[in-house]
Nucleic acid binder design. Structure first.
Lengths: 116, 116
DNA sequence: TATACATATAAGTGTATTATTATATAAGTA
DNA sequence: TACTTATATAATAATACACTTATATGTATA
């Protein structure tokens, strides 16, 4: 059985602060089922590309997400090696599925471009 | 079996933002095992009484905690009727116990005064 | 009723956060 | 190499946040 190390309450508070933003929380919930690139988030959240980049950077700085380049795109995914991952999964399971957002992109033909 | 209603992701984000503060998160974790009054929090967090009052008010405004007067003291407790309570419990179970903070108060004789 | 104690509220201040615009970097393609 | 597309970074401005100090309210008690 895997031993889950105890995380300080202060550390958890900083993770919760990151999740306490509608955009980032939705991003993370989406990433729990599909990897996404920045351009998809931009379409989805109807906000600017720099705004999205800054959100994902915060998540990356805390080790919650990781990136991998695929050509000109950068694909973000949940970092399953993070010490926060088990905690994160536990939070995410209470959230309503956000897959419909990807479905909407698909309908507009905005998903095929980079990620499949 | 009790039906848990689905809470919008935006609502959860505002709850997480409230929890994303070290002081409030610790408060809520403590309240999960013991009711507390403001004066105890003031001693514990080594901060001003108005600062504490403002934190508990935010939690109260969102329905996460409730208050009950006992003489001149106001005792705060988790609001088990809150729609967020099941979610909250789920988050709290990942946090390290904060009971030692009450033990320390006890040692200093600062606990007996109001709550028992 | 005067005073003390517990808590709340108001006003002000410094800092943090999140967006925007402009620009830089990095990869793909004609 | 020039141009396009995807993303990141920098600078800045508006807003939100969490304190502080001062004051108000509400209860207990001499």
């Amino acid at each position: 059985m895997q031993q889950e190390s105890v995380i300080e309450i202060e550390e958890i508070a900083t993770v919760l602060k990151l999740l306490g933003d509608k955009t980032r929380l939705t991003m993370v919930k989406l990433l729990d089922s599909h990897d996404c690139c920045v351009c998809e988030f931009v379409e989805m959240f109807k906000t600017s590309q720099p705004a999205i980049s800054q959100h994902v950077r915060k998540l990356k700085d805390k080790g919650i997400v990781k990136e991998s380049r695929r050509g000109q795109w950068i694909i973000y995914s949940l970092n399953k090696e993070s010490e926060y991952y088990p905690f994160l999964k536990n939070v995410l399971k209470s959230l309503p599925d956000q897959g419909y957002r990807l479905d909407e992109l698909e309908k507009q033909g905005l998903r095929i471009s980079c990620c499949d």
